[in-house]
Structure formats: C-alpha cells, structure tokens
C-alpha cells in the first residue's frame, strides 16, 4: 500500500525514527524549559550534558562493569550531582546579570566538556551494545520494529509524563511554579527558593543525561552527539513556548515526527523544516504555541 507514492513501510519507519528523535527532543527541551523557567538562564551546556550522560554510561561499563540498566539509574544521578555542584559554584554567580553572561558561561562549559571528551576519546565514536533484553525486533505485519527503538519511545514518553505530573499536580510542583512566577514573594512566604533552583538544575541536567544513556546504543557514544542535537532542541523550546512544560513535551514529539516525515517526502528539507516552523511560529505567536505572554 502506498501513500502519495511512498510505501507505507518506509513511511512508518520514518515516523518511528521521528518519534525516537522526538523523545530525545522532548526530554532535552523539558529540562531546558524547567531551567529557563526558574533560573532564567538558557543552558547552552545542555547538549554537552546529554553527551556526558552517554560517556558516563560507557565509563561505568568499561571501568566498573555496570551495564545499561545500572547506567540508566546512576549516570543521570552522577550528572545531577555534578550539575548541582556547578550550579552552586558557577551558575549561581550570574543570576543577577544580563542573559548574555549566562550564555557565555554555559556555552563555555559546553566547550570544555565536549573538548575534554574529544581530546581523550577522539571523534570517531565508541560503540555501546544494546542490552540483551531489548535486542532483536518484532514483526508488526506492516513493519519490522526493533525492540530497543520501541523501548526508547515508550520510556521517554513515560518520563516526560512523570515530570509533567510532578510539576503540575504535586505540592512540590506548585511550589516550583510559584517560585518560577514570583521568586521574591515566594521567598517572603518562607520558601527556600535558592534550594529549589539548585534542585531544578540538578533535575534538568539529570534528564539530559538520561536521554544520553538512552541514545548511546542507537547513535554510539560520540563527543559531538549533543551539539548535533541541541540546536534543534532550542528550536523546539522556542516553538513550544519558553518555560511551558507540556509545550516542550508535545512539540518535542511532534517536531520529531514532522522531521521524519519530511525525510520521506522531501529529504533535502529535513534539516530545515523545524527552523521553518520556528520562524513561522515566532511570526504568528511570539510566545510559542503553549507559552504565556509575559
């Protein structure tokens, strides 16, 4: 069966790849949106943190024999702790400064992290094996689904919904939203906003590291894997609306699929399509699809 002259297998294959990329976009833009909302800093180190997550997973396996499942838990934890340390020592110094200082600091951090991995491990990429339980595939009749790829789509969706639930439906989440909307008044109620800020930076970079571990078996562990992704993720955040949690999740998955489908119908535009969307959204709705007007 063909749709507009494209075999349905090819179409669904690209939709699946789109959903996988969309999952990474969603998790990364979720972290960026959380950090931007509360810290008012655009974390240019986010792609490098994703890379670092993949490297930590590989290092855990290489030196400690901790496999994929352990890495899925420990790598985000380790990266979150490093993130908390960096927030306390470096990032917290610039909250009162212009956005430009945040950009310079986090971009500098990204260059150092990526340059470090590049220096030690080169740019050719290190393979990271699929966990055994998730290798192989299933024939769905209309297409062949590699189990690991299905797993990535499901788990990234579940993680996104979990974070959304915590932010929108729990007491901790309402405190976070309050601190995002009016930090001075929230402090005046006796809420320790600086500690919430540290927590959110840890959570945001932990999510990026989690995505890095998920990506390692698909894309290999490569110092440049984050910088390839992060530009698109920034476009996703702008489209979804700065600081909007649901916006980041929905536009992450949706734009992954849009990108995948463009690869089928007009491949030369696939690198470009997200940015065309971004430009159009900025013209029509400057606050983004789900953003609130300031």
């Amino acid at each position: 069966m063909d749709i507009f002259g494209v075999p349905i297998q090819a179409l669904l294959g690209q939709v699946l790849i789109g959903l996988i990329n969309g999952g990474f976009y969603a998790i990364l833009s979720l972290g960026l949106a959380l950090i931007f909302g509360l810290l008012n800093i655009i974390n240019f180190a986010h792609g490098a943190v994703y890379t670092a997550g993949a490297f930590v997973a590989w290092l855990l396996l290489e030196y400690l024999g901790i496999g994929y499942w352990g890495a899925l838990l420990f790598a985000p934890g380790i990266i979150a702790l490093i993130g908390i340390f960096l927030e306390k020592t470096l990032v917290s110094q610039i909250y009162r400064q212009d956005h430009l200082y945040g950009l310079l600091l986090t971009y500098g951090m990204a260059l150092i992290i990526e340059g470090g991995f590049r220096q030690v491990y080169g740019v050719s990429g290190i393979p990271y094996n699929l966990p055994e339980a998730l290798s192989g595939g299933v024939n769905l009749g209309f297409m062949y689904l590699p189990i690991y790829r299905g797993w990535v789509v499901v788990v990234s969706f579940v993680v996104c919904i979990l974070v959304w639930y915590v932010i929108e439906r729990t007491k901790l989440g309402s405190t976070l939203r309050a601190a995002t909307e009016n930090p001075a008044l929230t402090k005046a109620f006796g809420i320790n906003v600086p500690r919430l800020i540290t927590l959110i930076y840890g959570l945001g970079v932990g999510l990026a590291a989690f995505a890095g571990v998920l990506a390692a078996p698909i894309y290999q562990v490569n110092p440049l894997m984050g910088s390839n992704l992060i530009i698109v993720v920034f476009a996703v955040v702008v489209i979804g609306g700065m600081g909007s949690i649901m916006g980041a999740i929905l536009s992450g998955f949706a734009l992954g699929v849009v990108e995948g489908l463009t690869k089928v119908f007009y491949p030369p535009a696939s690198q470009l399509v997200i940015f065309i969307f971004m430009a159009a959204i900025l013209l029509i709705r400057p606050a983004g699809l789900f953003g609130r007007k300031q």
């Binding site: 007491k171 309402s174 405190t175 939203r177 309050a178 995002t180």
Partner: peptide, 11 residues
C-alpha cells in the same frame, strides 16, 4: 500558574 487551592496551600 497555580489554582486557588494551590495558592491557599502554598505558604
């Protein structure tokens, strides 16, 4: 960004 209940229970 908070409901009335969340506002009431925040402090």
């Amino acid at each position: 960004s908070l409901t009335v209940r969340e506002n009431l229970m925040l402090p």
